[in-house]
């Protein structure tokens, strides 16, 4: 297990390096240069800016400096918001996105496992039909439609009640988080439900469940001890990628619900071509996602004895 953990961490570090390099290459193949816009008005200002952002150095040196500063955890200074460190921006806005994301993943995982198990147990009966219909909707409807509908519904509910049950937009309290997180987790929940259902169905028909029945175990015990634990395994493996989908999917929800998360800043930075913010945020997100995937892998190893023991 230790060896496995170390190996995963090492792989993760290499992956983060690859992401950083890919970002660097991508950003340096942008036609023109970051200072070609109206900001650099005179050659003197331009030279100053180049000096400040290190753009006058050879590309390889820039790369070394770039990787070096990332290693120190320094993502540089914003191009558009002078004197604002990218680190500050991340520190300020990432916790918002992360809170939203974690809440959404929790919704998705718990809801998906619950509904998936239900549909498998009530296969081809009414609860299954209803849930699977909703699942198909959840998979087919884009997140921004859910976000818009969620907000619309909230506005109407608040109007109907005559007071604000939950805030329609903004951030700060738990009330602000519930609907956005639900909306954000919706499609993943649908996905997990489907996965859980098929995984449960496969296990229900497996040889070892037949053995458990032949042992005369009560249905409840078969469900908790034998079916659920094994059916959850494939769900755990998709949680890592799901975290990635949810965190980046958060951009839309942040836009619709006016949540001051990092995603909204990233979109803003892209629109303003704020290079350091774009690079810093991408690499930071990349590192975050890689870390989450590794954590999920380790969690899987902890649950599945076949990985744990070897």
């Amino acid at each position: 297990m230790w060896q496995y953990t170390l190996k995963r961490i090492f792989q993760g570090i290499i992956t983060i390096w690859f992401i950083a390099t890919a970002t660097f290459v991508a950003m340096h193949s942008v036609p023109g240069d970051p200072l070609s816009s109206e900001r650099a008005t005179t050659p003197a200002i331009r030279a100053n800016l180049e000096e400040r952002y290190g753009l006058n150095k050879p590309i390889l040196e820039q790369y070394v400096l770039y990787i070096g500063s990332f290693l120190k955890g320094d993502f540089g200074i914003s191009f558009t918001q002078r004197n604002r460190q990218v680190n500050d921006i991340i520190r300020e806005h990432f916790p918002v996105s992360a809170t939203l994301g974690i809440l959404a993943v929790t919704f998705a995982a718990l809801g998906g496992v619950l509904f998936g198990a239900l549909t498998a147990l009530y296969r081809n009966r009414l609860p299954d039909t209803i849930i699977m219909f909703l699942v198909i909707l959840g998979i087919s409807v884009p997140s921004f439609v859910f976000a818009a509908l969620g907000q619309l519904l909230l506005v109407n509910i608040n109007n109907l009640l005559g007071f604000s049950l939950l805030p329609v937009a903004g951030w700060g309290t738990v009330g602000h988080m519930l609907i956005p997180a639900l909306v954000l987790g919706m499609s993943t929940m649908a996905y997990v439900t489907r996965l859980m259902r098929s995984s449960m169905l496969e296990i229900i028909h497996s040889d070892y469940i037949r053995t458990a029945k032949a042992k005369g175990l009560p249905a409840a015990r078969i469900f908790t001890r034998h079916e659920l634990r094994n059916a959850i395994l494939p769900v755990v493996t998709v949680l890592g990628p799901a975290i990635a989908t949810i965190t980046t999917g958060g951009f839309v929800v942040e836009l619709v619900f006016a949540i001051p998360g990092l995603g909204r800043f990233f979109v803003q930075a892209v629109q303003q071509l704020d290079y350091t913010v774009i690079m810093g945020t991408t690499v930071f997100y990349g590192a975050f996602l890689v870390t989450m995937v590794i954590l999920v892998d380790l969690l899987y190893g902890w649950i599945d004895p076949r990985v744990r023991v070897q």
């Binding site: 070892y208 458990a212 032949a214 042992k215 034998h226 094994n230 395994l233």
Partner: peptide, 30 residues
């Protein structure tokens, strides 16, 4: 009846035992 009066074993022992439960626990269950 099942498990107490009548015991049963199957063709493929590899797939007939729960992969995530220890052998001892599976024998102890009945």
């Amino acid at each position: 009846v099942r498990g107490a009066e009548i015991g049963m074993i199957f063709q493929d022992p590899m797939s007939s035992l729960n992969p995530t439960m220890s052998i001892g626990d599976q024998i102890a269950e009945p």
